[in-house]
């Protein structure tokens, strides 16, 4: 009988992630991160549990890197948790024991296509893509915004390192938008 085991592909539909360089920037498809939304339930306080597990819970508009996990704010009492995929493939199974019934946790790993844009002059690139003021917000900021009609999260990890998380089904459109904008600017 034929082998029926399942082999994953990247958001752009390949075996391996894509990486391109245009002028001073590099755009890389990133697949090494597991994602889950973490929402504090009504009347609960998950601050201590999160602290104990080394999971940051940044305030509105912010992203924070912890020891293993990072997190950015999604909406009131709700965060997106980032963890290394290799060790946290079933990220919900890792988070459930930490928060028990105090939080609602939903796997989001495959809901998003992530492209990391690295290099100099990133604000000049992003001003063609979204109305999020990269220069003013600076490193450690994260926001949802629109890029070419796509609802995306922009995470400023460092001045020269920005992640864009867009709907996985539109990975090709988003990648095309990033690539086109980079060619336009650089």
């Amino acid at each position: 009988m034929a082998d029926l085991s399942l082999k994953p592909i990247t958001p752009l539909g390949n075996d391996l992630p894509v990486r391109i360089s245009i002028g001073p920037v590099t755009i890389s498809e990133v697949v090494d991160t597991a994602l889950a939304s973490l929402a504090q339930r009504m009347g609960q306080d998950i601050t201590a549990a999160a602290k104990g597990a080394g999971i940051p819970l940044p305030p509105a508009g912010r992203w924070e890197q912890g020891a293993t996990c990072a997190a950015f704010w999604l909406s009131p009492e709700m965060w997106m948790i980032e963890a290394p995929f290799a060790s946290h493939e079933d990220i919900v199974a890792h988070l459930k024991p930490v928060f028990g019934e105090a939080a609602s946790i939903t796997e989001q790993t495959d809901a998003w296509a992530r492209f990391d844009v690295t290099g100099a002059s990133l604000p000049r690139l992003f001003e063609l893509l979204c109305n999020y003021d990269i220069a003013r917000h600076g490193a450690g900021s994260a926001s949802r915004t629109m890029m070419e009609h796509l609802g995306c999260y922009v995470v400023i990890r460092a001045a020269d390192h920005i992640s864009v998380l867009g709907p996985r089904s539109s990975a090709q459109s988003l990648f095309h938008a990033l690539e086109t904008a980079a060619h336009s600017v650089f």
Partner: peptide
Amino acid sequence: EHRELWFHEQGDRS
């Protein structure tokens, strides 16, 4: 003056 409901659809969904 008018009080209106707006949804931050492309934001934090508040």
